[in-house]
Write a protein that binds this DNA or RNA. Structure first.
Lengths: 247, 247
DNA sequence: GGAATAGTGTCTATAAGACAGTATCAA
DNA sequence: TTGATACTGTCTTATAGACACTATTCC
């Protein structure tokens, strides 16, 4: 124990959002251009401080999400990702960010939020490659968020969160291909997806007349755990690989 | 944006630790008896506030870990688990806790830390069942931590963190059985563990002369990702199950 | 030899990967 | 009929699960 009048150091809490969606078969991420210092003019994740001392963290995440996307809160997946609190990450002082992962079906063009001059969908590839630079430690957060999404696609029904209420199997396959960044065999995908209990359930047939045979429609099933899982193909490391883990 | 002189509400940050180990083939958790209000006299996770405004969160977790266990920092697995910040979780005010998961080989009897009157290893079963009550929202944290450990055992080499530098396959099997709470077939376990590339590597033979044939020894291999994974057996839901996920 | 623990081998069922063809619509 | 998209079926290989026996040590 410390000296008698020691008291714990206060910190400021923010929530940051990795909002993913599919646009033209590309995995995209919502970024805002910062309207204030620090990092004014730079791209960053949407997010912000707690509004008041009593605001729940998850509520704050929902609030930021709708500020930025004007979204019906219903059909959006939102979960806590991880907390980033390195002492040097924010020049304003000790700012700890609870990052969240949000996933939604093809969203409209974003709305500029409070702190943001402008907001836009950016393909995640350009962030992962380093081509687009982000403020703070947001690139790390994006990396972690995408890795989370990639893993959850294997074992949970998260993929349906990228789709509308009704979707075709081909659309679902596009989700997997875009998030994983791989191509999948259509025939095996059909077989496997339909073998998973409670993943997707048939919902009428015929739509999407883009010149071919109309596709059957499905909606998300009751199960959120996928069994058997849809294992992500290994990125074909030519050699007998010695894979290391991130953390 | 708010009124002009609005400023974000400060919060207090704690780190809490779910420290798991194996004691006599039982999965155990380190708990402390709280020496101060709130919840004085109640059992809780070891943890505490940041020491000073510049302390890194992970460093604080390491500090609490060694305060409580007097442990060589080398052979301990420590990772961030999740952040718990419900507005009502701590009567002292807005206290946000970044929970961590720590795993270590059979530890000695614990040392009473700073805030704690006493510390002890408690079988996790008694916490999960609700038989032992914990302060704050610590039971939820424990539940989440154990679920994390169970899952990571399937896909990562985390199990070796429960073992000493050298271990036998039988010991490794005990880890899996204790954490998963299931019995495994020895023959299949031997086959699968040895088929995983880079998981365990032979290290001399013969030790453990408890009256039978001496076991071969192994050490942790270079890979932290298990392929193929060691899938946890389903808890034999008698019916065709409709499994729901936690979050 | 007997007790105790360590380790192996085989058969079957399920799932994954590779691969080619048929079905249904619009124009 | 053609073009376009949706869908299905089979064969091979890898892994999971069930199960019974042999091996090495100490006494």
């Amino acid at each position: 124990m410390q000296a008698d009048e020691w008291s714990p150091p206060p910190v400021l809490l923010t929530v940051d959002l990795v909002i993913l969606t599919l646009r033209e078969a590309q995995l995209c991420l919502l970024l805002v251009e910062r309207g204030e210092d620090p990092f004014q003019g730079m791209l960053a994740l949407p997010g912000g401080f707690l509004n008041h001392a009593g605001e729940e963290i998850l509520d704050a995440a929902h609030r930021e999400l709708s500020e930025e996307t004007a979204l019906a809160a219903g059909r959006v997946h939102l979960e806590q990702l991880a907390t980033y609190g390195d002492a040097g990450r924010d020049p304003r002082g000790r700012v700890v960010s609870v990052a969240h992962l949000a996933i939604a079906p093809g969203l409209p063009e974003p709305v500029a939020g409070t702190d943001a001059t402008d907001a836009a969908w950016v393909p995640v590839a350009s962030v992962l490659s380093g081509e687009v630079e982000l403020a703070f430690d947001h690139r790390q957060i994006v990396t972690d968020g995408i890795e989370r999404a990639r893993t959850k696609l294997e074992f949970s029904a998260l993929a349906t969160a990228f789709c509308g209420e009704l979707f075709t199997i081909a659309e679902l396959q596009q989700v997997y291909e875009a998030v994983w960044g791989t191509e999948l065999d259509t025939r095996n995908f059909y077989r496997k997806v339909q073998a998973v209990k409670g993943f997707i359930i048939p919902a009428g047939s015929g739509r999407r007349t883009t010149g071919g045979r109309p596709a059957r429609l499905y909606r998300a099933g009751p199960n959120t755990v996928l069994f058997p899982p849809l294992i992500r193909p290994v990125p074909s490391t030519t050699e007998e690989d010695t894979r290391e883990e991130g953390k």
